[in-house]
């Protein structure tokens, strides 16, 4: 069954843990397969942006694109926001100061459903 407009909030795994990154990406691939126009909100508080994290964000955006979805980044530190702009990732991910602001905008545009270990939001 294909869900429409699902909104999922997830925290990125530690950039150094390769196995966790693989598992995370597998979940995102599943989300992309099983939903149409999903909205993935990545919570980034105090997460330092490493090249692995940037790579993972790019892979997420790629997967979401396949099902016409979108990735948003919430709670990024000013330093992280600068890096996202510098690397032009802001052209493929939306950046919000907090999860609630990301959800406020996203939820108005999309519905939501439950998904395994992510936080799930009602429209």
């Amino acid at each position: 069954m294909i869900s429409n407009g699902m909104v999922v909030v997830k925290q990125l795994p530690d950039g150094r843990a390769r196995r966790k990154r693989r598992e995370f990406l597998a979940e995102i691939k599943q989300l992309a397969r099983e939903s149409y126009r999903p909205q993935l909100i990545v919570d980034l508080p105090s997460r330092k942006l490493t090249s692995e994290v940037l790579d993972l964000l790019l892979s997420c955006a790629e997967q979401m694109e396949k099902s016409e979805g979108r990735v948003s980044v919430a709670g990024a530190s000013p330093e992280a926001a600068v890096i996202l702009e510098l690397t032009q990732l802001t052209s493929v991910v939306n950046v919000f100061p907090s999860v609630s602001e990301a959800v406020g905008i996203d939820a108005s545009r999309f519905g939501s459903e439950d998904l395994n270990d992510g936080r799930h939001l009602a429209a």
Binding site: L49, T50, S51, L54, P78, E79, A81, V82, I83, E85, L86, T87, Q88
Partner: peptide
């Protein structure tokens, strides 16, 4: 492929003038 706006870059250090912060780009290899 970078887009550097309103900033001064000195080696691995970037001063962003919009936000008034300094970011170390060295660990990212940027």
């Amino acid at each position: 492929g970078l887009c550097v706006r309103n900033s001064i870059i000195d080696g691995t250090r970037l001063e962003n003038l919009d936000r008034g912060i300094s970011v170390d780009l060295g660990p990212l290899g940027l």
